[in-house]
Amino acid sequence: MSCHFHQGNGVMPILFFKIILKTNLKSLKIPDNFALKHGSGLSNPVFLKPPDGTRWKVCLKKKNDQVWFEKGWEEFTQNYSLDHGCLVLFKYEGTTSSQFDVIIIDDSALEIDYSSYGNDDDDVSVQIAKEIHPYKKNKETMRGEKNVTTSLSLNWPREPRAREEAIKFVSNNPFFTVLLKAPHITQYLLCIPVLEGYVDNGVKNVKLEYRDRSWPVRMLSCNKTYSNRFFSAGWNLFAQENELKPGDVCVFELVNMQDLVFKVHVFAAHHA
């Protein structure tokens, strides 16, 4: 559904929304009436701009009078954990950059908390290696110990359970912590920190070690579309073969920087 309003001689922004289904998580068809009126004026790629200030580059497929969001759309849905029943509101102002402001409503009919998705390393993470972790400092001080343990945590999880495990985890190696959600298990991407200072940018082949086995996994680089990195090819197999579940907390410890080997520590979800 889409609509636009006239105000004097000007045109107000055009709004349309799409309900997210299992069938449009990888590509999304723009409403036909919008495509007929404005499709020819859209640049390719376009940019999606949520309220968190990020801009996501999405390539279009135009066929006859129909327009689809394709390359880049799946990364957008993955980052914000879009699933069946979510709603995305698009606002288009006809700008030369073909930018769409977007608002995401989850299946509870509330706008999502954008700060919980994807950009952990931009504003509230610990990030800087070898700094004293403030919570670990307090913990050690309360115990009366003289030597304060430093933390090489590369992110600062917002979710309480993940944060708790990150605080408790002690290692001489850099590590990051992720609370798994349903899309992390069923899809092929897992958003991870940039790993700046330990792994240079670029697509990498890494190994994930768990128990007595290892799995090869592809690590995608940062680019202008997104500021994080991702585990991609191989991640889904790792998650399935180790029966990872939503609610599990994973700590990824970089035990070999030369060969890019991560030892994975899994803290299972609490079940009633």
Rank of each mutant, 00 (worst) to 15 (best):
S97I: 07
T77M: 00
I14V: 10
E209N: 11
L220Q: 09
S221K: 12
K263F: 10
N242C: 06
H184C: 05
T225Q: 09
R55K: 14
D120R: 04
A239H: 01
A272D: 14
W68A: 09
D200S: 09
V102K: 03
G118Y: 00
A233F: 05
L195N: 03
D101L: 08
L89R: 06
L237M: 11
T54L: 09
V88R: 07
G10N: 14
A239G: 03
L189A: 05
C191D: 09
L21F: 15
K207A: 10
N236S: 11
H84S: 13
S98G: 09
D101Q: 08
L190D: 01
F76E: 01
P183W: 00
P13R: 00
T225V: 05
S98N: 05
Q240P: 05
I105D: 04
G72A: 07
G39A: 09
M142Q: 15
I14S: 14
S171L: 04
Q187K: 13
D121H: 15
V194N: 13
R55I: 07
N205V: 12
M12E: 11
N33H: 13
S125Q: 13
R143H: 10
L15S: 14
D259K: 11
D32I: 15
R161I: 11
L60V: 06
A269W: 05
S43Y: 06
L220Y: 01
K18A: 13
L195I: 06
V249W: 00
L179C: 11
N24E: 06
N119L: 14
P50K: 00
A268S: 12
G144F: 01
L42H: 03
S116K: 14
F267M: 13
R158E: 02
A109I: 04
M257R: 14
A269Q: 04
A268Q: 08
H265C: 09
P13C: 02
P160W: 00
F252I: 02
D52R: 04
A269V: 08
A272I: 10
F231G: 02
R213C: 12
C222H: 05
V11W: 05
A162V: 06
I112N: 00
T149L: 07
Q66M: 10
E241G: 03
C3S: 14
G53H: 01
C222Q: 10
L48M: 05
D123Y: 10
I20Y: 03
F47K: 13
T177S: 08
V206C: 10
K29I: 15
L89M: 09
M1A: 15
L237S: 15
Y92L: 01
K168D: 11
L36N: 15
W156Q: 13
N228R: 06
M257S: 15
P216N: 02
N205D: 03
S214I: 07
H38K: 12
A269S: 09
H270I: 09
V203S: 12
S81H: 11
V203N: 10
F262E: 06
K49F: 07
L48C: 04
L244C: 06
E75G: 15
A162W: 02
K263T: 12
Q240S: 12
K224H: 13
E165N: 04
E70Y: 08
V266F: 01
